[in-house]
Amino acid sequence: MNKKEYISSLREKLVTLPSNDVEEILKEFEMHFDIGVSEGKAENEIAAKLGSPEEVAQYYLGEAVPEYNPAGTEQVAAGAFPIVPIQTWLGRPNRGTTAQTIQGFCHPTYAIPPKNKAPKPEPAGDTAHQGGRAPDLSQPHPKQEWKQVELTGYEQYPSQDPNYQKPQPKTHDKAFAILFTIFVFVPVWFIALALTLLITAWPIVTGAASVTLFALMSSFSGGIFLGTLFLAIALAFAVIAHAIIAFFAIRGFILGTIAYFRWLGKSTTSAEKEA
């Protein structure tokens, strides 16, 4: 591991510390490398003597045992830092990483990095406890006694649940279908039919009136002739407008009727299947 690799690796490990502190710490390690190199040592040799970046980071992040580990191969205590939950605008951790995050934090080798960087001064008179605590690695660290959590958090995203069952379309039995058709659908349908016919008849009536006026026009004379002409033209335009309305009314009526029978057929069939 050369200087650059060592520094960047250490930077990664110290990510939880304030950036000012990290820069200060890294500056010191850079100087260490520079001095070593100026004394004719190889960068990887210096890095090996420093101990692994993981180990060094442990001293900065919390307490760890100063241990001679020149090869820099063995890691001290904690494993990889677990994935940090990303806060979404809902104020909940990002669902995609929640499971991994909780697993990470529950992992027995994970210790919370201390929030304040400066260790509290020891109480006066207690001098038997200096130079960083030495956790007994055979014992579980008190901070690491995590409860195993059963993951149930699919309320927000039920379709992601492995046991998720797609909601079945609502079904009803045949009796309901018949009664509903007779007492609701048929009356509504007849009213709709009457309205549709009325709307359709309208352009026919106005059209007929317009045509009649045009036909009678030769028998009129003077003022009446022009008045009749304009009325006939107005009625002709009304016919066009009404025809458009009538077209959509008929279309709606037909489509509505078809949709009703489709829905009725679908939902009653599945009800029969279930039964």
């Binding site: 710490i25 010191e28 390690f29 260490h32 210096i46 003597k49 420093l50 101990g51 180990e55 060094v56 001293y59 900065y60 100063p66 241990e67 001679y68 580990n69 020149p70 820099g72 260790p119 130079g131 960083g132």
Partner: peptide, 13 residues
Amino acid sequence: MISDGTVYPLLRK
């Protein structure tokens, strides 16, 4: 017999 890297955290403390 400690690794060099442990001295810096100690100095910081």
